[in-house]
Design a protein around this nucleic acid. Structure first.
Length: 603
RNA sequence: GGGGACGUAGCUCAAUCGGUUAGAGUACCGGCCUGUCACGCCGGUGGUUGCGGGUUCGAGUCCCGUCGUCCUCGCCA
């Protein structure tokens, strides 16, 4: 809604939430209001209507002069000219602007009539998602959803300002680009001019921003749309937005400092929240050992404890076998006051453990006399006290043990820890806890295809440029022990973004490609332009990208990114509003040289 | 690709052990009401219970399939 008064200049609706909101000081002023109107009931010839601005913040009751107005539909768009008057003082609700003042209407013009809406727009009642998404443009009229988009806009603008203040240059990179092997599945676009050839939509602007570093734009950023043809989740849409950046002649520290400053200013300017900087840092291995995940929610303790040293003193073969096979035994000590029952452990938690790949969960209610639980008979005499000392448990604490390969132990206890955090509400809403997680593994072995994959991406620099020596070939298991200069930014248990120091030397890049099973020929075909670019004296560089949808959702306390995206897709990646994807005319296919038989559309 | 939950009026939901004419609130339409702000009162329209098949004397309810939405595992360099 726009509002003009004699005293007040026209307000830019993008700048303020309160523009359009009628206040007591406006009494006596002449106004023009344009907005959505939800007509209430006909009341003896008077129409009482709520005028709602585009943020849904203003509700105005029209005064008695409105009684001659024509009858109108349930929702419509209109323009009202009138005089603002104070209502009878005895009937004012002091807590809300609505009702305090009203407009005596001099002229009313219906700009646009409305059909009966498919759901009630003037309430925040729950409506089925598919209905909301089919009529997203009506859903967006609802105050709660709309304010998310306003918040998002503020966030993006604040970030842009913060980057520009640090002399970053925003550069747009192509949306029609080249398919990249590895990583996520590409969305492909057939070329009309080149029969049988395809563009791909970018999974990220990664290579382009590295080329910008070679080009000498040593402080780049971009609000970048990215596309990944993978299954959706609450925190994942097939297209999403990154705040992407890259810098030259820098290392981890410089990236961290830049982002800490940017995020500090963003939260301050967009939300008035003072985020403490610098953010704590933690190596990946510490994150895994202490929290069992690479995106730990550090707002609560309940850290994983090492039980290994105690194992040789006991007779529990499951634990001994795990250690003998090179695995680990770790524990989660749940304070007695959290009141975790035997049933909780044996039902809920055991189920979580099984979902996480464990055979089971050993539990022990700590006690100096041997405690209670399946583990109790292995905790005779001194052993009980020794175990309590080893894992830091007190009398009455519920201790949960996982044994096996370290990845599995981390996973099981990490999942259970996260469950307990939610269950016992160990986190406070409205807190923002950032952590840098550094030094991720360089490679991960894929048992199915029997080859190494990059844990981050193939352009990530190893911590050790020499990668443990020249004798490391693509078959060496040693590759699994190498660390990279990749880092993530984690907030409240969510991965917000990731980045790395990049490889800027052609030889190193070629070697990484070889380890990943990309032969010389293939390297040339797929990444020739990058390798050649690196050969022209590429500066050392590093970068980072943050998921804007996730950041916006989290900052609003939401756990689904759907409502910070104007037109989101469903879990089956379709757009219910416009009906995408859809069948196209055969002529269109012929034009782009696709002759494959198209399966008939679903019934 | 796998697992789970859900699908009943425009919307939000109910319907007992499988039982006879599928209800309520709201919305919508009509009537009454000049100070409402979830206005009130009276009346009315509105349903192939997502779709297809099966079991049964009888299915919204049970079974199978299918479609859709949500959550999740795999996947997301």
């Amino acid at each position: 809604m726009t509002m003009t008064t004699a005293q007040k200049p026209k307000t830019d609706w993008r700048r303020t939430h309160t523009c359009g909101e009628l206040r007591k000081k406006d009494v006596g002023a002449s106004v023009t209001l344009n907005g959505w109107v939800h007509a209430r009931r006909d009341h003896g010839g008077i129409y009482f209507v709520d005028l709602r601005d585009r943020y849904g913040l203003t509700q105005v009751v029209l005064g008695t002069e409105f009684k001659d107005a024509v009858k109108i539909g349930p929702e419509f768009t209109l323009s009202v000219h009138g005089k603002v008057v104070a209502r009878d003082g005895s009937n004012v609700n002091k807590d809300r602007p609505t009702g305090e003042i009203e407009i005596i209407v001099e002229r009313l013009e219906i700009l646009s009539r409305s059909k009966v809406p498919p759901f009630q727009i003037d309430t925040d009642d729950e409506v089925a998602l598919d209905t909301r998404l089919t009529y997203r443009y009506l859903d967006l009229r609802r105050p709660n959803v709309q304010k998310n988009l306003v918040h998002r806009s503020r966030f993006i603008n604040a970030m842009r300002r913060a980057f520009e203040k640090q002399n970053f240059v925003e550069v747009e990179t192509p949306i029609l680009t080249k398919a990249t092997p590895e990583g996520a599945r590409d969305y492909l676009v057939p070329s009309r001019v080149h029969p049988g050839e395809f563009y791909a939509l970018p999974q990220s602007p990664q290579i382009f921003k590295q080329l910008l570093m070679v080009a000498g734009l040593d402080r780049y950023f971009q609000v970048a749309r990215c596309f990944r043809d993978e299954d959706l989740r609450a925190d994942r849409q097939p297209e999403f937005t990154q705040l992407d950046m890259e810098m030259s002649f820098v290392e981890e520290d410089d990236i961290f400092k830049t982002w800490e400053q940017v995020l500090h200013e963003t939260f301050r300017d967009a939300m008035g929240v003072d985020v403490a900087i610098p953010f704590p840092r933690m190596s990946w291995i510490d994150a895994m050992e202490r929290f069992g995940v690479d995106k730990p929610d550090v707002r609560f303790g309940l850290e994983l404890q090492e039980a290994g040293p105690w194992v040789p003193t006991c007779e529990f073969n499951v634990f001994k076998d795990a250690i003998a096979k090179g695995g680990r035994v770790k524990a989660l000590v749940v304070p007695g006051k959290m009141e975790l029952s035997r049933k909780d452990v044996e039902d809920t938690l055991t189920q979580i453990a099984k979902n996480s790949g464990a055979g089971g969960l050993a539990w022990w209610k700590a006690g100096k006399e041997g405690g209670v639980g399946p583990l109790a008979r292995f905790c005779k005499g001194e052993q009980a006290a020794a175990l309590m000392g080893q894992i830091g448990a007190s009398e009455g604490d519920m201790c949960l043990f996982a044994a096996g390969p370290k990845n599995q132990v981390w996973r099981v206890l990490g999942d259970i820890r996260s469950h307990l955090g939610k269950r016992f509400q160990l986190t406070q809403p409205g807190t923002w806890s950032f952590t840098w997680v550094t030094q991720f593994p360089m490679f991960e072995w894929d048992a199915d295809s029997k080859r190494w994959f990059s844990a981050h991406h193939p352009f990530t620099a190893p911590v050790d440029w020499d990668m443990g020596g020249a004798d490391v070939d693509a078959n060496s298991p040693k590759l699994g022990e190498l660390f990279s200069r990749a880092y993530d930014l984690v907030m409240n248990g969510w991965e917000l973004g990731s980045g790395s120091v990049r490889i800027h030397k052609t030889e190193v890049q070629q070697r990484i490609f070889s380890i990943l099973g990309i032969g010389e020929e293939e390297q040339k075909r797929k990444f020739g332009f990058l390798l050649e670019a690196l050969s022209f004296g590429a500066p050392p560089h590093a970068g980072f990208a943050i998921g804007l949808d996730r950041l916006t959702a989290l900052s609003l306390g939401m756990d689904n990114i759907r409502d910070v995206v104007a037109f989101p897709k469903t879990t089956s990646a379709s757009d219910l509003m416009c009906g995408a994807p859809s069948v196209v005319a055969p002529e269109q296919l012929v034009e782009v040289h696709i002759r494959t038989a198209i399966p008939p559309p679903k019934a």
